[in-house]
Each structure stands twice: as structure tokens, then as C-alpha cells.
Lab assay of single mutants.
Amino acid sequence: MAAGGDHGSPDSYRSPLASRYASPEMCFVFSDRYKFRTWRQLWLWLAEAEQTLGLPITDEQIQEMKSNLENIDFKMAAEEEKRLRHDVMAHVHTFGHCCPKAAGIIHLGATSCYVGDNTDLIILRNALDLLLPKLARVISRLADFAKERASLPTLGFTHFQPAQLTTVGKRCCLWIQDLCMDLQNLKRVRDDLRFRGVKGTTGTQASFLQLFEGDDHKVEQLDKMVTEKAGFKRAFIITGQTYTRKVDIEVLSVLASLGASVHKICTDIRLLANLKEMEEPFEKQQIGSSAMPYKRNPMRSERCCSLARHLMTLVMDPLQTASVQWFERTLDDSANRRICLAEAFLTADTILNTLQNISEGLVVYPKVIERRIRQELPFMATENIIMAMVKAGGSRQDCHEKIRVLSQQAASVVKQEGGDNDLIERIQVDAYFSPIHSQLDHLLDPSSFTGRASQQVQRFLEEEVYPLLKPYESVMKVKAELCL
């Protein structure tokens, strides 16, 4: 049975990233139509530049190519590739079939990587351009969430054990800070992308030097003109047959890092959902379990974690691919890159769409948070109580021993009897502590235990987050809708 299948058929496997999760716009960027249309555009740009620099290419040939950029006979191309065992030459023939007058000058002087690699770089750039505003929107939604809850005390956790208090907004800023680093890295790697350009079979530009009869300047002009037509500021000066596969490492490393950030955020949300302090959106008709109707599973956060793990592992592909590119190139890269580049971007696209949807509907339960604080705060307040007693004339050592005994009794009630923490009640009825009984409410005010959390939130948002989001103001209103 021949390899390949009808990918629109229910009898043929289709990647869930495309069929179930990723956005239509990201799927289109990695589609065959987008790819092969870009090949034709690159052939047109090459012909236009070659004509401008004096090669015998007519206006009629150029116009014929322009008129057929979208006229792609995919069936013919597939048949040609089956016959020739070469995808680029299959599309040269297919393009030439609908451009008979231009057929002889299509791909003039070029090698397969002229269309293959340059198209990949265009796709990487455009895919990054799709991700950047999506990530900015996630940051914006979380920034709104953090600002609104900047002063809401909550129990902090280290080692997932109760620690000092923080605020809900401050905790959210930990998430935002990681995503801001990801946004900066995505922008950097996007701006650092260079075009492969017009380089020939081993990167020496020998074929173009021959076409222009040894004119170095025209060869350099050709490279520059096509690079500018493709919208790049610069091209690699040095290439082998391909652009260095280190570029793929750079791009997928940034995406993998984004995956790590999203995994951490969504894990926190899942843990908070278990504590009943916070939940992701839950639709009115949504079913959490087929057997347990009360369940409210954090399905979206779980999906993000599941896909983020996949995204983090994909960076190993370009690392290994770059390491086995012998001399000017081997074909070890080809099949692998067809999979890992598309999957990385479709996965990143999915987790950003999902995280935006989550961040637009996060639900906080202040009463649950308050109750958990009441359970733990008495123990945390013991040092403040000791200091207040010393100020009232008591002995630190005597007070410490009193607190120690009462704390152990209260802990026994919590752990052995399943009761509430009654340390404060014990202190309130103990005559030894009568000098500070009137101060206990103040000493137990949760806001006095959150330090500068709310001020940190305000400063972080104003100095770091809002300036970073400013270039994306025009796209901030787009909502994230999930079908599944």
C-alpha cells in the first residue's frame, strides 16, 4: 500500500493539533497551500530580480507567473513527485505547466533550498508574528487579574506546605514575570531571523556568478533584492546548502521555554482548584465526569500541561538535527523538520489560546482563602504575639514557653481530632496574655502579614508589564474561544 493518505478522510490519521486544537490561522501558515504558494512567490521574486539585473526574462513571463501564483494543481504535483521522487522539481514542473512561456526560467540558477529553506524562514517569521500578540493578550488578562487582587491576602506555599502570606495578585505576578520573559525572547528570536537568500547549491553562489558572467556586484544585488522582497532586513552571508540548523534550535528553545512557563502556571491553577481557592472557567453544560456528576475538573489547565510537556520535548529534535548536518548538509534534517517545526508552533498556539481562555474567566473564592488563612495564621502570628507581650512588660522566655504549650495543644486538636485551630481562643482565655487581649485582632490582621506584596504588584505592572504590552494595544480586544 502506498504511503500517505487522504487526510480529510475519517479513515486516515490526522494530527489532533490540526484537527482538534490549533487555530485556523496557525494551521494555514503550515498548510501545503501556504507552503507551495510561497515557493511560487519566491520563484517570481527571483525572476523579477534577475530581470532587473539584466537576464533575458520578459515582462510577459513575469506576468504569467504572477497570474498563476494561486493556480496550484495539487493532484498534478503529487503525481509528479511520485514520478520524480523530488518535491521541488515536482512543483517546478507543475508551475511550468500553467506558465508555459515562463517554464524555462522558473528556478533559474537556484537549488531546492532556495524555495525550501527560504519558505521555512518566512513561515517561522509569520508563525512567530501570530504567537506574539496571543502571548501579549494572556499577559494582559493576567495583569488585569493581578491588579484587581493585588491586596487580597492568601496563604503562600513553599514545598506545598503553608508559608508566609502573600497576595493573590502577587502570586499571579510570578506567572506574568515568566511570560514577559517569554514574550521578550519570542520577539528577540523573531527579529534575529535572517533570510537564507540566493546562495546556490553549497552556499557559494557559483551558479549565479556564472549567470551574471562573473559580476560579483550583481550577485550581491540579486541576494539583497530577493531578501528585501521577502520582507527581511538581512540575509546570511555564510550558508551551506541550507541555512544553519542552529536557527531551528533557537526558535524551538524559546517555544519550549514558553511551554515550561505555561505548565507551571496551569499546575498552580490545578492545585488551587483542589484547594477550592480558584477555578478555571466551567461552562453551564460542561460535564466533569461521566460517573461523578459533582466533579469540576480543571480540564483546560490539564490540557495545557499535557501539550506543554510535548512542546518542551520537541527542542531535542533540532538539537540532534543540527549535530548531524555533515559538511554542507545531509538530508537527516528533512523529514524531522517537516514534523517538529509545525508541531512546535501548533502546540504553542494551542496552549496560548487555551491559557487566554482560562485567564479571561478565572474565578476566585475569597471566603475559602480566608478560612485557610484562619487555619494557619495563628501559628504564624506567634512571633508577633511574643513581641507584643514583651512590649507590655512580659518575659520573652516565659511567653515563648506559654505559646509553645498552647500551640501544641491547638495542633493536637487540628491533627488528632480534625478540629479547627483554636490557638487564639486559648490565648484569649489565658490570664497571662490579658495585657494584649485587646491587640489580638490587630495582630491577626492578614494584611499585616503580606509585606509589600501589593506595592510590588503595582510597581511591576507599571514599570515592566504595561510598557512591554504597549506595541500590542491594537490587538488586545480579541477574545479566545474554545470549541473543545
Rank of each mutant, 00 (worst) to 15 (best):
D6R: 07
H7A: 09
G8M: 15
G8Y: 15
S12I: 15
Y13Q: 14
R14M: 15
L17Q: 14
M26H: 03
C27P: 14
F28K: 09
V29I: 11
F30C: 12
W39H: 14
Q41M: 15
W43A: 00
W45H: 12
L46C: 07
L46M: 07
A47F: 03
E48A: 05
E50A: 07
L53P: 01
G54F: 12
L55K: 12
S67H: 14
D73P: 12
D73I: 05
F74K: 12
K75S: 15
K75T: 12
K75I: 10
M76W: 11
A77S: 11
E79V: 09
E80A: 14
E81T: 01
K82D: 14
L84K: 11
M89S: 08
A90E: 02
H93F: 10
F95W: 12
G96T: 15
C98G: 09
C99T: 12
C99L: 14
P100A: 09
A103E: 08
L108V: 09
G109A: 08
G109C: 03
A110S: 08
S112K: 03
Y114S: 04
G116M: 06
D117K: 00
N118Y: 00
N118T: 05
D120A: 06
D120T: 06
I122R: 01
I122L: 14
I123P: 02
L124D: 11
L124K: 13
L130V: 14
L130M: 08
P133N: 14
P133K: 14
L135M: 15
L135T: 14
R137V: 15
R137L: 14
V138G: 09
F145W: 10
E148D: 12
E148I: 09
S151P: 08
T154Y: 04
T158W: 00
Q161A: 04
P162W: 07
A163E: 04
Q164T: 05
Q164F: 06
L165T: 00
K170A: 04
C172I: 10
C172F: 04
L174Q: 14
Q177H: 12
M181D: 12
M181R: 07
D182M: 00
Q184D: 12
R188C: 05
V189C: 15
D192K: 08
L193P: 04
F195G: 07
V198P: 10
G200S: 13
G200W: 01
G203D: 00
T204N: 10
A206T: 07
S207C: 11
F208V: 06
D215H: 10
D216A: 09
H217T: 12
Q221A: 13
D223I: 00
V226F: 00
K229I: 04
F232G: 03
F232H: 03
I238N: 06
T239I: 10
K246V: 03
D248T: 03
I249D: 04
A256S: 15
S257F: 07
S257E: 08
L258W: 14
G259W: 00
H263K: 03
K264R: 13
I265T: 11
T267C: 08
D268A: 08
A273V: 07
E277L: 02
P281D: 12
P281I: 07
K284F: 13
G288R: 00
S290T: 09
P293S: 07
N297S: 01
N297R: 03
P298L: 03
M299D: 04
E302R: 01
S306P: 02
A308I: 02
A308L: 02
R309S: 06
H310C: 07
L311H: 05
L311D: 01
M312Y: 05
D317Q: 08
P318T: 07
L319R: 00
A322N: 06
S323V: 03
Q325V: 14
F327W: 03
F327P: 01
L331A: 03
R338K: 05
L346I: 15
T347R: 04
N353K: 12
V363P: 05
Y365R: 12
P366R: 09
K367W: 05
K367T: 02
I369N: 11
R374K: 15
P378C: 06
F379Y: 03
M380D: 00
E383F: 02
I385H: 04
I385E: 02
G393Y: 06
G393E: 08
Q397G: 11
Q397V: 06
D398V: 13
C399A: 14
C399K: 03
K402H: 06
R404V: 09
Q408I: 09
Q408P: 04
Q409F: 06
V413M: 14
V414D: 02
V414E: 01
E417G: 12
G419F: 06
E425V: 07
E425Q: 10
V429S: 11
V429A: 11
V429I: 11
Y432P: 05
P435H: 08
I436T: 05
S438Q: 08
L444E: 02
P446Y: 04
S447Y: 15
S447P: 14
T450F: 05
A453M: 02
A453H: 05
Q456P: 02
Q458H: 12
R459F: 09
R459L: 10
E464L: 05
V465R: 03
Y466A: 11
L468F: 07
L468H: 14
L469E: 03
L469N: 04
K470E: 14
P471F: 15
E473K: 15
V475S: 14
V478I: 09
L482F: 13
L484E: 13
